[in-house]
Amino acid sequence: MSAKLDTLAHNLNECLGERIVRHSLALDELTIEVRVADYLSVMRTLRDDPSLAFGQLVDLCGIDYSAYGSDVWTDPRFAVICHLLSLDNNWRLRVRVFAEDDSFPVVPSLTSLWTCADWFEREAFDLFGIVFPGHDDLRRILTDYGFVGYPFRKDFPVSGHVEMRYDPTQQRVIYQPVSIEPREVTPRIVREETYGNPRHG
C-alpha cells in the first residue's frame, strides 16, 4: 500500500508542484491542500492527467473549523473537502480548500468536471452556506422549504431556532421559537495527549 502511495505522492508533485499548499500522509491517506484560485485547475489536472486519473468524485462536503480543538481557531473557518478515487489506479486522495472569506465563503463549483458534484455542492450550500459560483442550480436540498440559517455551522444550536406545530385556533401549521431547553448530556472534553498514560501519572 505504501509503495503505491509513494508513487501517487510523486506523481502529484510532478503534476501539481507549486499548486499544492500543504500535503500530508497520515493513516494511509494522502491529503493535499490547495488555494481557492488554483482549485479548479488542480481538480482538472487530477481528473485528466493519466498518471493520476481521478475519474471519480466520491464525496464533497463542507466543514466548519471554528470550534476545532481547545485553542482558538485562527485560520479560515470554512473548507470544502473532496474525496477522489481512481478506478484505474485504485487510489484515493483527499483535497481540502479553505474558503477565504468567513462571512461569505466562496469556492468554485466542480459541476463542469464531475456531474455528481451537483448535489454534493447543493448539500454543502444548504448546510454550511458555502456558495459555489458556476453551479447553475444552487438550491437548498436537505432542509425544509423556506428554512432560514445554515444548520451545520458550529454556532447553530442542535435544537434549531424554530419549531413547527399545528395551531387549532388559526387552523394551520405555524412556526414559533423553540421551547426546548438546550442541554448537553456528555460534555465535550479534549484531553492533553499524555492523559491516562501511566508514565505521566
Partner: peptide
C-alpha cells in the same frame, strides 16, 4: 464515513 477528530470524546465532523 469521513471522520474528523480534534482529540475530544466526540467526533468533530462526521460526513
Amino acid at each position: 464515513i469521513y471522520l474528523v477528530s480534534d482529540g475530544a470524546n466526540k467526533p468533530y465532523r462526521l460526513k
